[in-house]
Design a protein around this nucleic acid. Structure first.
Lengths: 215, 215, 215, 215
DNA sequence: AATGAATGAGTTTTCATTCAT
DNA sequence: TATGAATGAAAACTCATTCAT
């Protein structure tokens, strides 16, 4: 019933090396995982601290030894989800030379992540506006950071004449929007998605859209 | 704080003509508007029925004369928001001949809507997964419908050889994702956004991305 | 659906003579009848003023023209039920000479009443302790009056040597208890009860129990 | 105000022997007792969960740890009252040989119970028709069971020629009615009632009423 | 006189959090 | 350190009553 696996993505074996000792997870991350699962299933308000505790295999009081409140637990869970995602994404983005290839890789990773860690993806890309201003600020600044990084890349490429003079900021935002548009489909799709193909199509459209074309 | 204006969009004067008599609003839509405002500000769970009532200028019990429960009120508010949006969007989509121009118009309308009716936009494009299965189904099928309509258009154009052989479904999804990526920026931007420019940029990228190019 | 008839009991034709003009019932008794029906069906607290109004065919506000509150309506309904019952019972009790026959008649009337006017019977013989102290006092004093009247009769008979030297008060109470024991069975029995037989049996037992027997 | 004693009846010392250690009552029965008291005083609808909690010396939430709802608490209270009564009554009924003596004992026990456990008696013998169908069914079947048991006894005696050929069912019902007629008087009487005398009188009347007499 | 739309006081119930063990 | 029994603040909802029409 639990089997919350979190094994490395098929495309990220190098990232998790050295973590497979399956050492006795400490209570804190046990609770964090349970929280991810329960929050993602029920949403913040419908989630019950008792269920999170039970699901983590600890007593209700124990949760409060590690987290000062429900909101604190939620925030830390989001944070950890954000870190978890960033870690995987950043790593790859620093690698390859060619922009197209790098973005293709970004998309693949992104799609893999969403598909593999549905729970976390749902929490990271969800709309938590009503729960906590702070969380919303995090998520916004998280996305802005992502967009800024992408915008910087587009700008650099543009100055090298590799892409058309599009607005780098807007282009970044559009890419992030495209990426986000896959969250729900990937979470709710039962059949195994063809992630490679999806990534290629998106990249094709985007690159034709922003490449230089001789008139 | 009230001033829930709902005057025609600057770009939709033709749509609302004849409706500006500002006739005595009936209680039901008064409450619906208050609900939109309060729900959009606090989210479903943090919203208090009492505040909605106060905000609509009626007593707590009156709300229950028109809506059987908090959930019912929420659902009807979403529904009305959906209709409100569809009304404005569908109208334009059936008009112009040229796809590019039609989509440009779609984007402009979409952006105007979001910017003008922040409350409604936030509710329609928000993530209500944890509140009510039914609402989620509505929103998903609403988006799917939108995507299907766009996909059909792309497919038709494709058969006329007007655009590249991209996956119409995926392209539609990407366009919807692009559109959605503007929700938060437009809602939270204080400065007047240059909607025309934004729409043009998006359309440029998308059309270069999907047009036929001689190799 | 209404057809709350209140026609004379088969055994009381003489009582209602002159009332069969079926004259346009005035609003007040219309409401009183509706209240009897609704209160008896749902009990005081579950009964809704709105339903009583609807059932009486008047508006909600109208009820308050005739009765100052729900409690007032309830009290007046009980009172009217009490009077209705007393009227029928007292009349008969003053008639016949022979005690045995008089009591037999009392029982028959009582049983007929319960069976015919289930609604009223249920309200009169129910336990309204929790609703209103005043109502309870009425019901208790109503029963005490009944018992006192019977006790007086028993005492008189006793002094004439017609019955054993039993405690008249206790005997009266026992008789009333016997009578009450038929309320639920008569209300809930679907089949037509053999009221004569029931009365005879009860009277037989009681009279053997209290008659003088030569040892 | 607390002093909910529940010491053994003066006439039932043998039943409760070994139970008078007044051991630390557990919360559940503490609440059940408080409920009995409050429900019996105010009736189901007028009773406030908060008062029951306070009266039991626990917090409001604690009541819901043991009972899922007000109705559940009410039902369990009735059930426990029914069991409590049955326990005491059944025990004695199985003992003595002579019918007259057995019934005399039954009455004494019944009267003692009512007088001693007014709260419980009021709940058990009250009319809860409007509160909950299930409770009504319990009470009816409880009374029917009682009547059936008595009817069986009367029938047996009859076949042994010990009593007149009365309708055993009706006789049982009458006896139960007689018994019930003492509920209110015993509950509301301030002075110490002479239970022995009352029982003897009732038994005398009933037995003369149903015995065989040579004409 | 008759109405019914509007009202808000009052109640059950939930569940995050505490704290004695 | 870990626990879960106990708690009480807070919110949805009901319905008797009012009063403008």
């Amino acid at each position: 019933m639990k089997e919350r696996a979190y094994r490395p993505l098929p495309c990220e074996e190098e990232v998790d090396k050295g973590k497979d000792k399956t050492k006795e997870r400490d209570k804190r991350s046990l609770i964090l995982d349970a929280a991810t699962q329960v929050f993602s299933q029920y949403g913040y308000h419908e989630a019950r601290m008792e269920e999170i505790a039970t699901c983590a295999g600890v007593g209700k009081g124990t949760v409060y030894e590690y987290f000062s409140s429900k909101l604190d637990l939620f925030q830390q869970m989001i944070r950890s989800g954000l870190d978890f995602y960033s870690q995987r994404i950043k790593y790859t983005m620093g690698q390859k030379d060619d922009l197209r290839e790098r973005l293709r890789h970004l998309l693949i990773l992104h799609f893999c992540f969403i598909h593999k860690y549905r729970d976390r993806a749902r929490m990271i890309f969800g709309d938590h506006a009503s729960i906590n201003e702070e969380v919303v600020r995090w998520l916004i600044s998280f996305r802005e950071e992502k967009e800024a990084r992408l915008a910087a890349i587009f700008e650099a490429e543009q100055q090298q004449g590799k892409i058309r003079p599009v607005d780098p900021q807007l282009t970044a935002q559009i890419l992030v929007g495209m990426m986000a548009s896959f969250v729900y489909p990937l979470i709710y799709t039962e059949t195994e998605p063809d992630i490679e193909r999806m990534a290629n199509e998106v990249i094709d459209i985007l690159f034709l859209g922003i490449s230089c074309h001789r008139e």
